[in-house]
Design a protein around this nucleic acid. Structure first.
Length: 504
RNA sequence: GGCGUUAUGGUGUAACUGGUUAACACGUCGCCCUCUCAAGGCGAAGAGUCCGGGUUCGAGCCCCGGUAACGCUACCA
């Protein structure tokens, strides 16, 4: 299947990268793709680069970048060049490179492979609706592609907002995916992609190609969801007159139902795994299991009783993992197996190490010192600490119905409202100042009193109607774990409801 | 709808360039150990490799045709 020799011998210098977007918590998918890139670079003595793709201003989350750094370091995936440590091809943050993209967009306009498009969002939306209604594939109609130079200049002079689109000529593009072989796309199925948005920021496609070239990336190892847009990228390399890198498309991590892994159905935040006490060795090991790539144990290893063909360190992966042997079926991210792996690593710890691990995470000074002020005025003895804070030290809690259903509400409407709380909280900054108005606004719009509103949340988070201050507790507990607890609650209640009325 | 990718027990993987009764791990169930629960030990069930054809002495591995799942189809990445 593979078209490249095994990693062991070949030492061609490679440069690879991961390019996460700071739009929220660091994602397990980022770590997965990061791991593969990391291994590939380390095995070949190449460089592993971290580039922050912060070109979407609407989804930008300021705290996200640092969390990405922390999470990758936690897992041991260290990079050679990046926004924090610099490097010869910086800056490594796309928002600091906008001038570069603008220049390159202009280059394409000048050589006729891109053009300014003055269509408004409303116009495009209308066209798209028509096309969908007529069962046609939604496609840019090409209105501005044939605009005369004079007209275009006139619009420009008039200050009309515009985007820059690439010209997709007639024909087809074939590129090689190093894991699957040649893939061909007819250009009739490739849209005139927007390269530069009207706010002056580039889209992924432009920024990615320009940066990968400028940063001398040799191998683009990314997720399978990019296969469909690879012909656009290949076309762009051609338009610039550049040589394209090699492309490797990794299978997508999946939920239990086989859909692309998502926070709705699985904890996907690396912060969640760290804060709820998964060891980084276990997480990285588990990720290495996804998609294969580790050779089966040799006969000698089997004779020696080394059944640990599934328990291996990052170092062992560098030694033995083979990227070209990746399996292409989307692996299900199975929490059960991850938990087992984690338990293996925990049991392998010395008592001292185990205690140290506790003190670094769930019993860290940092965490406990945040909890303490919440209960000081609420205890008669220090011994009550545990009584009041156990919900912050537990993996999960589950309130009984009499606790979470308000007196004047039905379980159904309560669950509905809880789901809305979850949606609101997902989009809220995790600070007291942001949480309070966001929740109150939701309550008002749904005619839920502040009391009912907060009590429901309290029940879900703490399992009880009595607790330290709610919002403060949520902040201390953290966004990733709080949201996960809410999702688990909703999931469990949904199942229970289904069980209680199965026959219709 | 269009285009693309993928397909081995419930889940993750294994099976040398096609070669004996498809292997391992997680999970499940049972037994043992045991003050409990884990861990550990022993054992069991569970796939005939998406389906249908073909090539071959022989196919999970090769060819053809289907099906299903997933992804993309944005001024998100």
């Amino acid at each position: 299947m593979s078209t490249v020799t095994a990693a062991t011998a070949s030492a061609a210098p490679v440069r690879v990268r991961i390019a996460p977007s700071p739009t929220g918590d660091p994602h397990v998918g980022t770590a997965y793709i990061g791991l593969i890139n990391f291994l590939y670079a380390r095995q070949r003595g190449g460089q592993f680069i971290l580039r922050i793709e912060d070109t979407d201003r609407t989804r930008f989350v300021p705290t996200s970048e640092q969390m990405i750094f922390d999470a990758l370091r936690w897992l041991g995936l260290t990079w050679d060049e990046g926004p924090d440590c610099g490097g010869p091809f910086g800056p490594y943050r796309q928002s600091e490179r906008t001038e570069i993209y603008r220049e390159h967009a202009q280059m394409l306009i000048d050589n006729g492979t891109a053009y300014r498009c003055f269509c408004t969002a409303e116009e495009l939306e209308a066209v798209r609706k028509q096309q969908t209604a007529a069962k046609l594939p939604p496609r840019y109609p090409g209105t501005c592609r044939h605009l005369s130079a004079a007209q275009s200049a006139e619009n420009l002079a008039a200050g009309k907002p515009f985007v820059v689109r690439m010209v997709v000529p007639a024909g087809s593009t074939t590129f090689r995916d190093e894991l699957r072989g040649d893939i061909t796309f007819e250009h009739s199925n490739v849209d005139d992609q927007v390269l530069l948005k009207s706010d002056g920021f580039p889209t992924y496609h432009l920024a990615n190609v320009v940066d990968d070239h400028l940063m001398q990336i040799t191998d683009v190892i990314r997720a399978e969801e990019w296969i469909s847009s690879t012909p656009k990228h290949v076309l762009l390399y051609q338009s610039f007159g550049w040589q394209a890198p090699r492309f490797w498309h990794m299978p997508l991590l999946r939920n239990i139902d086989k859909s692309k892994i998502s926070k709705r159905k699985n904890p996907v935040s690396l912060v969640y795994y760290r804060d709820s006490g998964f060891l980084p060795q276990a997480v990285i090991n588990f990720l290495g299991l996804m998609g294969g790539g580790m050779p089966s144990p040799t006969p000698i290893e089997i004779v020696n009783g080394a059944k640990e063909n599934e328990v291996f360190s990052l170092q062992q992966m560098i030694e033995r993992f083979e990227v070209p042997n990746i399996r292409l079926g989307g692996p299900v991210f199975d929490l059960t197996k991850l938990r087992w792996l984690n338990s293996e690593y925990i049991r392998a710890l010395s008592p001292e190490q185990f205690y140290a691990a506790l003190r670094e995470t769930v019993l860290s000074d940092r965490y406990l010192s945040q909890i303490a002020p919440l209960i000081q005025s609420r205890v008669d003895t220090l011994g009550q600490f545990g009584d009041l804070t156990s919900f912050l030290l537990r993996d999960d809690v589950m309130p009984p119905a009499e606790v979470w259903v308000p007196k004047k509400r039905t379980p159904e409407e309560t669950l509905l409202f809880a789901a809305e709380q979850l949606a609101v909280l997902e989009a809220t900054d995790w600070t007291l100042e942001a949480l309070e108005p966001a929740l109150k606004q939701l309550g008002e719009s749904r005619a839920w009193s502040v009391k009912e509103n907060f009590m429901l949340l309290r029940a879900i988070l703490t399992g009880s109607t009595m607790s330290p201050p709610l919002l403060e507790s949520m902040v201390v507990f953290g966004k990733a774990r709080t949201l996960d607890r809410m999702r688990r609650f909703l999931e469990t209640q949904k199942k229970l409801a289904a069980q209680n009325q199965p026959k219709k």
